[in-house]
């Protein structure tokens, strides 16, 4: 600090602030600047009166205009909903199992389906619909109950082993737990089942298992093990396994049976959303 003095060059008083010999001049402020500053103060007081401003203990001052960002958001959401109603009606009027021909309607269905999927389905099937052990991958072409648009929509509506009266239901016996087959027999069947999707020579165990398979399994899974979508019986001859394709997992599946569950979405989601979801899932790459 130095004491305020008159600067020789400019003839202006200094403020007395000094850094390394550089002093600050105390030039006058334009008077309009002062007025602008005062006008801002007046403006802010007016703002407090008309706009929401001060926090209170449980609330806040509302302001005379009654402006609320929350109300603005609610309003724009309602407007967006209203603007979609035309698309929603057209989508609902579409015959089941038919993809919209209009690209705009299609993208409306895909967009709505994508967000409904993220909220309702991703918990089990994964955010990328890749599934997990026990929860089918929706991207591939392996479907328990059919991969046509109408099949997917039906599965969404009634669920699997759900509370819906028309629920999809596949009932595989627990061959081990219920004593229908002995453990060595089950192991032989497992070897045979695994051989269906593997090329190469059939082992003697698998050959034994083939007989047992023909006796116990073909009713649902078919002669060649390719499954039956009417019954929700999985294709055992492809390389895809919902509960694991290693020997132990297959033995466990035969012994204990797997009873996967999917809820019914009828009543929980509206018809348009269910249709959007079906179109979205169908579009993921496995749709038939």
């Amino acid at each position: 600090m130095s004491t305020p003095r008159k600067d020789d060059v400019s003839g202006v008083d200094t403020t007395g602030h000094e850094w390394d010999g550089i002093e600050e001049l105390n030039n006058p402020l334009p008077r309009w600047w002062l007025w602008t500053f005062l006008a801002c103060i007046v403006w802010s007081i007016g703002y407090w009166v008309v706009m929401p401003a001060w926090p209170l203990v449980a609330d806040h001052t509302r302001g005379m205009l009654g402006y609320s960002q929350r109300a603005v958001v609610a309003d724009s959401l309602a407007k967006a909903k209203a603007s979609q109603s035309g698309y929603a009606k057209r989508l609902a009027a579409l015959p089941a199992g038919e993809n919209p021909a209009d690209p705009d309607l299609q993208s409306f269905a895909l967009g709505g389906g994508r967000s409904a999927y993220a909220v309702n389905c991703s918990q089990c099937h994964g955010s990328g619909a890749a599934g997990a052990k026990g929860y089918p991958n929706l991207n591939d072409d392996d479907w328990l109950w059919g991969g046509k648009l109408a099949d997917i929509e039906q599965t969404l509506r009634v669920g699997i082993r759900s509370t819906h009266p028309d629920t999809r239901l596949n009932d595989m016996p627990a061959f081990g737990r219920d004593g229908l087959l002995t453990l060595p027999q089950i192991a032989d069947v497992a070897d045979y089942v695994l051989s269906l999707s593997h090329s190469g020579a059939v082992s003697p165990q698998a050959a034994r298992g083939q007989t047992l398979f023909a006796e116990n399994c073909t009713a649902c899974h078919g002669e060649t093990g390719r499954g039956n979508r009417e019954l929700g019986a999985p294709n055992l001859a492809d390389g895809l396994w919902l509960y694991g394709g290693d020997r132990a997992s297959v033995i466990a599946s035969i012994s204990e049976s797997r009873r996967g569950v999917m809820p019914t979405w009828e009543g929980r989601l509206d018809d348009v959303t269910i249709r959007q979801l079906a179109i979205y899932v169908h579009s993921l790459g496995g749709g038939e």
Partner: peptide, 11 residues
Amino acid sequence: RNPLFVALSDG
């Protein structure tokens, strides 16, 4: 990125 790849039934 999600899924990174999809295995199909024909391998």
